[in-house]
């Protein structure tokens, strides 16, 4: 019971660590990693809050939704990576920045 609060707290921290990295680091691949960590944090809060029953069973509804979510986050990663590779090929950049410096490189 208190364990579920512990995991929910950990999930919250994971979400904010991921959000922080998403804002701070410029490399696109690192942003994709950060978004994945954010997703894992959300899943963890969701399932941990579903694990609060007194008889030690975890709520199957959040479990099923997180299973779906894991596959969807893989879809996100795959599409984001292809977009990042495309950005890299068109601009030579591995970040979102495209200005004079990019043309000079």
């Amino acid at each position: 019971m208190s364990v579920s609060v512990l995991y929910a707290g950990g999930g919250t921290l994971l979400f904010f660590i991921g959000l922080h990295a998403l804002l701070v680091y410029p490399h696109l691949l690192r942003k994709i990693l950060a978004a994945n960590i954010m997703g894992s944090g959300v899943f963890m809060v969701f399932v941990a809050l579903g694990a609060r029953s007194s008889d030690g069973v975890t709520d199957p509804v959040p479990q099923a939704m997180v299973l779906t979510g894991i596959v969807v986050s893989l879809c996100f990663t795959a599409v984001a990576l292809v977009l990042a590779v495309r950005i890299h090929r068109l601009t030579g950049c591995t970040t979102f920045v495209q200005d004079q410096e990019a043309a000079g490189d």
Binding site: P26, I32, L74, L81, V97, E101
Partner: peptide
Amino acid sequence: GITGALLLVGLGRLGSAVRCRPL
């Protein structure tokens, strides 16, 4: 497993260096 493999393939195509820093 699969996300890790995807990311490694992506790293192979993108490279580790930060190209184009914000001016």
